[in-house]
Write a protein that binds this DNA or RNA. Structure first.
Length: 155
DNA sequence: GCCAACGTTGGC
DNA sequence: GCCAACGTTGGC
């Protein structure tokens, strides 16, 4: 069992959208490091912090679960999509998606709090220049964040 | 909207 | 393979 943090821009797709739809193909990841995590390491049943970025209050806003692993991101083949990639073919796809299922919404844990917490100084998210949209979370960090910043059932 | 930090591209 | 130019991310 691994833990992850996935970023999303709430203007595009928010935790409320995930809650309303119940599950979602996580498409449009166009960074090789993030792609490699999706392809090689994200496993069935892994839990994911959903993080809102590029918005008024960036932070962790909920939890989701991986219900389908590594498959070719359909948007790379869709000429109408902004994620279309002319160099990708079904025989040789470049980009990978997984499907997430809504688990629960959290009262937002703002980035400012995560950054201020010395216990979380090693988290990728709080490192300078961190831009990775799919990042692993250590089990100790996952547990610590749930214990300290939430009152939820997944402890 | 600014801009620092990264990532990607392409000429050489 | 280097590296300058360009594009993107994402907090502020």
């Amino acid at each position: 069992m691994h833990y992850w943090l996935f970023k999303t821009e709430p203007d595009e797709f928010s935790i409320d959208d995930l809650k309303a739809k119940n599950d979602e193909i996580w498409d449009g990841i166009r960074n090789y490091q993030a792609r490699n995590f999706l392809r090689d390491q994200v496993a069935l049943g892994d839990l994911v912090f959903i993080y809102h970025s590029s918005c008024k209050q960036p932070g962790i806003v909920g939890i989701a679960k991986v219900i389908k692993t590594a498959f070719a991101d359909p948007s790379q083949f869709d000429a109408q999509s902004k994620y279309f990639d002319a160099k990708a073919t079904p025989d040789n796809p470049r980009w990978i998606s997984v499907t997430l299922e809504f688990v629960e919404k959290l009262r937002i844990i703002p980035l400012t709090k995560l950054k201020a917490d010395q216990q979380l100084a090693d988290m990728h998210l709080v490192q300078k220049g961190s831009r990775l949209s799919i990042q692993p979370v250590r089990e100790s960090e996952w547990q610590y964040i749930l214990d300290k910043y939430t009152s939820n059932s997944l402890k």
